[in-house]
């Protein structure tokens, strides 16, 4: 079953076409990587998917329904969560609170219940906190519950972002360079984590430069260059594709 489909998705900034008519289909339970040289439009593509940028033309279908140009919070509520390339945690909130914020769209206590802290709100609060603890344990941050987002180590911040995204209970998880700036050991842990997320039945679409991650876990790889999709296929095929080699290394 196709969970995400983009049809000729295009995004222009003035005269610059950052994403150029990209067609893509992602099946349920897949891990798909998007690679490409710097400035190829990968992050812009993500921003269009999650509604942060409105698309210039084309369509985005999530589980068969059109989510083109919906507001970011609506897209998240429908089941698409993301992390950011430059980590964007809530700096002055603890790790636990960061993950609890992620559960906003899956909880219901409104302002009156919150103001009066009714039994319902209290129950929901402890459920939210328990679930947040589980997610922190899941990504390996159980020991940093009350550390401010700002004070976490870089690798931990990245994992906390993943936990926060998982807290929105997504069907599709978009990871923007989850292994950037990590040492080999941390990269191994991230690969393991992404596998675990997939094994829970979630679909993962990731942008990555780190070839060990890309070739290690991807079912499929999509290559973007100057906003266009230039190749798609299994890791082996894509690495051998002359157009991909040309995009990365230049013409011989």
């Amino acid at each position: 079953m196709t969970i995400l489909e983009t049809r000729r998705l295009t995004k222009c900034f003035g005269g610059l076409t950052a994403v150029d008519a990209v067609n893509l289909q992602v099946e349920q339970g897949e891990i798909v990587s998007i690679i490409g040289p710097n400035g190829a439009g990968k992050t812009t593509y993500f921003n269009c998917l999650t509604g942060i940028y409105p698309a210039t033309s084309g369509a985005i279908l999530f589980r068969g329904s059109d989510i083109t140009n919906r507001k970011p919070f609506v897209v998240t509520r429908l089941g698409v969560a993301r992390t950011f390339q430059n980590v964007r945690l809530f700096a002055e909130m603890s790790a636990l609170e960061n993950v609890m914020v992620g559960q906003y769209c899956r909880t219901r206590a409104g302002v009156l219940r919150g103001l009066l802290r009714t039994p319902f709100a209290r129950r929901e609060f402890s459920q939210t906190a328990t679930h947040a603890m589980e997610l922190l344990e899941f990504v390996g941050l159980g020991h940093q519950t009350h550390t401010w987002g700002r004070n976490l180590a870089y690798g931990e911040q990245r994992r906390l972002e993943i936990a926060r995204a998982l807290a929105t209970q997504p069907e599709l998880l978009l990871l923007d360079e989850p292994a950037a700036g990590m040492n080999p050991q941390e990269v191994g842990a991230i690969i393991e984590l992404i596998r675990k997320i997939r094994d829970q039945g979630k679909t993962v679409l990731l942008i990555e430069h780190h070839m060990r991650v890309v070739t290690g876990i991807s079912d499929r790889i999509v290559v973007l260059d100057y906003g266009e999709k230039i190749a798609e296929g299994t890791p082996k095929d894509v690495c051998a594709d002359p157009r991909v080699i040309e995009a990365y290394l230049g013409k011989g």
């Binding site: 919070f73 998240t76 700096a91």
Partner: peptide
């Protein structure tokens, strides 16, 4: 803390 990130976490 970060409005864009908050929106991406499903907060209107």
């Amino acid at each position: 803390e970060d409005e864009t990130a908050a929106a991406a976490m499903g907060i209107p």
